[in-house]
Simulated scan of single mutants.
Amino acid sequence: MNNRMDRHRQHKRGRWIALGVVIACLLGIFYGLNTIYRSVSSSLSDSYTKIHEKGGRPADAIIRKGQPISILLMGTDTGALDRTDKGRTDTMMLITVSKTKGIHLVSIPRDTMIAIPGLESTFPQKINSVYTFTNVSDTMSTISKYLNVPVDYFALVNMGGLEKLVDQIGGITVKSPLSFTFSTDTSHETGKNLYQFYKGKTTFRYAKDGVHFKTYHKMNGKAALAFTRMRYEDPRGDYGRTERQRLVIAQLVKQAKNPALLLNKTFMSSISKNLRTNLTTKDMLSLATEYYNPKKKVKAISVNETSLWYEGISFQVMPRLEQQRVTNELRSDLSLTHATTGPVLAGNPDKFTIPQAVSQVLYANTSSNSQAATSN
């Protein structure tokens, strides 16, 4: 195994998909459209890939009791643009679903530095490489250990779903937070299939040949993918890209309120080919019929990390105080008692050495006593 797999330059093609596709496949979570959902459940049962990875709790029993659950949403950078390899989970979102508190989302930055449990000799790694090195089960376990919260279910989707989803709902209108030019061929400002977005405007320009531009008022799937992929020209880096992802997600949710656009057998069969999950159709129906609360909105919980270059690689480091704050939020959402957050950088601290520069970020604004108290 190459113990520096993630040292190579990240593939610059599409970086996120998970939530948009899962909105289609798990739409009942948001809108409780159980009647229509039942009409396509047989199609779903036959077409999406079910695997039997389990979290740390008897989640099916938890759903039967109506208690809060968690779902790890992972989007791989494969399945479109000619990518067919296993890929990395460049989108990772932990979603909590509660009858009383609604739906909360925690986006975990793809460049978050960790030591993969059981593979600490490969430290440092990025959290999006856990799946590449291991499997779905170990990825669920790593997130669970890192934040000290149970991960009950997962949904793993690839890039092949976003274009279909946006096109199926007839496109979306999004106001860009900044001006930028992006080629889906080169991932830079020049090349063919060139898009130009403008700050404060919903209109954008596109040139297939990179020269002759036309103006458009609504994004199709390819345009939405380009809008969310750009990273290197954004002065806010991953945080800016995350904002653009949220803008697209908000429009997807808004458009998806029309069930006729999505909940039909042809589309569900097509989109579900891009999905792997351990949620059964029965689980989905239970979430749709029992957990839906129209008065509870979807809430995004931000994660504040610090950028750090280490051995020529750009990482995001989550300070221990921030790690504890996120744990507190998630455990509260899941109606669990307060507990200390998970291990430093997720791995066994006896099996790897934390560089001083990283340690300074981890324990910023904490005393030596609090450092010792939270380092176990």
Rank of each mutant, 00 (worst) to 15 (best):
M5W: 05
M5Q: 10
H8G: 07
R13L: 15
A18F: 02
G20S: 04
C25F: 14
C25S: 09
L26E: 13
L27I: 12
Y31W: 08
Y31T: 09
L33D: 09
T35N: 10
I36G: 04
Y37G: 07
V40H: 04
V40C: 08
S41D: 07
S43R: 12
T49C: 03
K50R: 14
K54H: 07
R57N: 11
R57S: 12
A59T: 03
L72D: 09
L73D: 02
G75S: 09
T76V: 13
D77I: 12
A80T: 14
L81P: 00
K86R: 13
T89R: 08
G102P: 00
S107Q: 11
S107N: 15
M113P: 00
M113F: 01
S121Q: 14
F133M: 07
F133K: 01
T134M: 07
V136W: 01
D138F: 08
S144G: 05
L147E: 11
V151R: 01
A155H: 13
Q168K: 06
G170K: 12
G171W: 14
T173C: 04
V174A: 08
S176N: 06
P177Y: 00
T181R: 14
S183E: 05
K192Y: 06
N193E: 09
F197N: 05
F204M: 08
Y206Q: 03
D209K: 13
G210L: 11
K218N: 10
N220T: 15
A224D: 06
A226H: 13
R229E: 08
R231S: 09
Y232W: 11
G237T: 10
G240R: 01
E243D: 11
Q245G: 10
L247S: 11
A250Q: 14
V253T: 08
N258P: 04
L263A: 11
K265R: 15
S272G: 10
T281I: 14
D283H: 10
T289P: 03
K296G: 10
A300P: 02
G312S: 01
G312W: 10
I313D: 03
S314H: 11
M318I: 13
P319V: 09
R320V: 15
V326I: 15
E329D: 12
E329C: 02
S332T: 10
L336V: 07
T337V: 12
P343M: 05
A346K: 06
G347I: 11
F352E: 05
I354G: 07
I354R: 11
Q356F: 10
V358G: 05
L362E: 00
